[in-house]
Amino acid sequence: MTTPARTPGAVPRQDTGTDPARSAAPVVSLRGASVRIGGRTLWSDVGLDVGAGQFVAILGPNGVGKSTLLKVLLGVLPPASGEVRVLGTAPGRAGQRVGYLPQRRSFDPSLRMRGLDIVRLGWDGDRWGLPLPWSAGRRDAGRRIAEVVELVGASGYAHRPIGRLSGGEQQRLLIAQALVRRPELLLLDEPLDSLDLPNQAAVAALVGRICREEGVTVMMVAHDVNPILSRLDRVVYLAEGGAVTGPPERVITAETLSRLYGTPIEVLRTSDGRLVVVGQPEAPARHTDRHTAGGRP
């Protein structure tokens, strides 16, 4: 990746003084929202406003319902109570204006489909009927796909079979797939998961650049906040009883997190500006989180 990583600890670009989410109409807003899965309430009384162009991280222990929050925003799962609005309409109604990258997808190594074909699914995969081979739409599709592949820096390998690409290369193509219809809101579920450190930094820089330069609002679920810390406008820390929202330096503190989880939690800052959260509770007795993976089983 060519984009230089910003120095950790840099001042977030918005969120100084007045909260922009209050001035303009929010891209995402939740009021007293709660969600139930299989008769169990995952989280409740969550309120949140995300303004246009913000980069927001969704944090919290495993199994707390971070992925589920994205599913609620996508309209795949209805909230049990409360009000949820996305881009000024009900969840699931904004269609292509929302781009989505689900958690931990990888493709079967034997899959011969090219990266370009996977990106193309994001362009017209939801259309019925067959495309006419000579239509103007086909040229537009080719141009836009090439453009977005270039944007994520995948031009060098987008024509290769997706199953043979590395995790970082697949992740960039999947981000391209999510971006190809020019969404206003990008929902990313642990895109840095299972990438090595250089790739984590590169993909984080890419997402930061998309947010800044393309003006796309980004909500990213993250297991580790550090790779994106310097780029964040705000974080949402999710817990069973609710959520706290705000700029990272105000939310990721010992007092806030201890209050949120009702148990003593320490936040350490290393000399290079990284935050380490100690004593964060894992969600009640469950094995690893079960996700229905997209792609092929």
């Binding site: 292509q96 995969g125 939801d126 997209g294």
Partner: peptide, 14 residues
Amino acid sequence: LFASLDEAVAAARG
């Protein structure tokens, strides 16, 4: 095709 390759994203796109 979309649903077969990428169920979660396809569902999110309606």
